[in-house]
């Protein structure tokens, strides 16, 4: 699940540095959509708040922001803040939705139609 060359060491003291300067390090903040998929990078850090920890645990496999909101019974905007925290700490990764400008591209639509045929 973790990308090559980006290993996560939970005991790394540099983590504090990363938390405090996450903004500059990440550069442009990832905008989180209702259907942005969140996936954990590692086991939850023991120091995490319960909600943060719960997100890391349930995102063992990909889950959308909407699903996290449903399982935690928290508003989407709250979940967005929590996931943004976790992104800064490299506890999770975000997989943005397929970009749809004015209209979706043909390959995407073909894939969706193919998938729907199996319904």
């Amino acid at each position: 699940m973790s990308k090559a060359g980006k290993t996560w060491d939970p005991g790394n003291p540099d983590r504090l540095y990363i938390i405090t300067s996450g903004r500059s390090r990440t550069g442009k903040q990832t905008r989180l959509d209702l259907v942005t998929l969140v996936v954990s990078r590692a086991a939850p850090d023991p120091g995490l708040q319960p909600e943060h920890s719960a997100i890391v645990q349930m995102c063992d496999y990909p889950l959308s922001i909407a699903e996290i909101s449903a399982y935690l019974t928290l508003p989407v905007s709250t979940v967005t803040v929590l996931v943004t925290d976790l992104l800064k700490e490299d506890q999770v990764e975000a997989r943005p939705p397929v970009p749809v400008a004015a209209l979706p591209n043909v390959q995407l639509l073909e894939a969706v139609m193919h998938g729907l045929q199996n319904l």
Binding site: V35, L37, A54, Y61, P62, R95, P97, V98
Partner: peptide
């Protein structure tokens, strides 16, 4: 906090969503 049921889990390979 309850996460998804086992049968509701998406494969790790899921790269992106549409709505």
């Amino acid at each position: 906090y309850a996460g998804p049921r086992k049968e509701d889990i998406l494969p790790s390979s899921t790269a992106a969503a549409v709505k």
